[in-house]
Nucleic acid binder design. Structure first.
Length: 265
DNA sequence: AATATTGTTCAGCA
DNA sequence: GTGCTGAACAATAT
């Protein structure tokens, strides 16, 4: 379930480990994950080159290939992750492996085939072509930008928060977390949110995303007052002592507190 | 053993 | 056209 915070942590991980090492070998283990380009083409673009920088938009990670016009695109689906280490063998479910000249290797791990490995010539063009909305961590994502995201939308606030073409990055878990802290019922129609509620969602969104990144997107390190460690039916709300309920919204399991998130539904 | 899980895509509908 | 909803997919855990 890599969402924005998880992918941001992956980006920081790549920044700290995998840049500026020449790539001696490339192993592609799962052609089904490679979209829009032949696996051998990816190998050709990477081999002998280094990774120059990393960029993230929403749940997508882009790695700039030094001395090459293209970027390596990684999407993690629900079960993807990265591992940088040395030694013989590789982690289970490794689907792409880059062996660096320093003896370390970067593994893209994915238990399932939901995800994407590709090459893109231009990140901004890809974002446009994919129809991705703004990223909430972008410098210019202010309250006005968030209002634009909501403008003219129908449906529920939770559905909107998960809609990558409205705003890119939140998935099921963090959409719930934001609404939990903003004290808004997940099925509230977007059009019924008043100015205060819109501002509350905007502020909460920034705080939750930043705090999750600070916790390295690790549930173990999330504050116990968050919803995340309590995502089960009939749990006790860590905020108000109410009851956590499970419903389905936009086809996804949704957890919320029936007491302090009762309003505006 | 049947069911829940969730990001994206796409068919279908208002 | 548009945008929203829900089914389908993958494959593992429970």
């Amino acid at each position: 379930m890599p969402e924005l915070p998880d992918v941001q942590v992956f980006k920081q991980y790549v920044d700290a480990t995998s840049l500026h090492h020449a790539i001696d070998a490339v192993y592609m283990r799962e052609p089904a994950l490679v979209k829009g380009v032949a696996p051998r083409t990816i190998r050709r673009h990477l081999k002998g080159h280094a990774l120059a920088s990393a960029r993230r938009h929403g749940k997508y990670l882009f790695l700039d290939i030094a001395d090459d016009p293209d970027w390596l695109l990684l999407h993690f689906g629900m079960t993807g992750s990265l591992d940088y280490s040395r030694g013989s063998g590789e982690p289970d479910y490794t689907k792409l492996r880059l062996d660096f000249r320093n003896g370390y290797r970067l593994a893209y791990i994915n238990k399932r085939k939901l995800g994407r490995i590709s090459l893109v010539p231009d990140v901004d063009d890809f974002i446009d072509a994919q129809g991705l909305g703004p990223d909430p961590l972008a410098d210019d994502f202010d309250l006005g930008a968030f209002r634009s995201v909501l403008d003219g939308r129908r449906g529920t606030i939770k559905g909107l928060l998960m809609n990558q073409s409205a705003m890119a990055g939140l998935g099921n878990v963090y959409a719930d977390e934001v609404l939990f802290h903003a004290s808004i019922h997940p099925e509230t129609p977007v059009g019924l949110l008043d100015d205060d509620a819109v501002e509350a969602v905007y502020e909460t969104l920034g705080q939750v995303v930043q705090a999750a990144i600070d916790a390295r997107a690790d549930v173990e390190q999330m504050p116990s007052t968050w919803l995340l460690p309590h995502r089960e039916p009939d749990a006790t709300c860590p905020r108000c002592g109410g009851t956590i309920s499970r419903i389905e919204v936009s086809g996804r399991a949704t957890y919320f507190c029936t007491q302090h998130q009762a309003g505006r539904g």
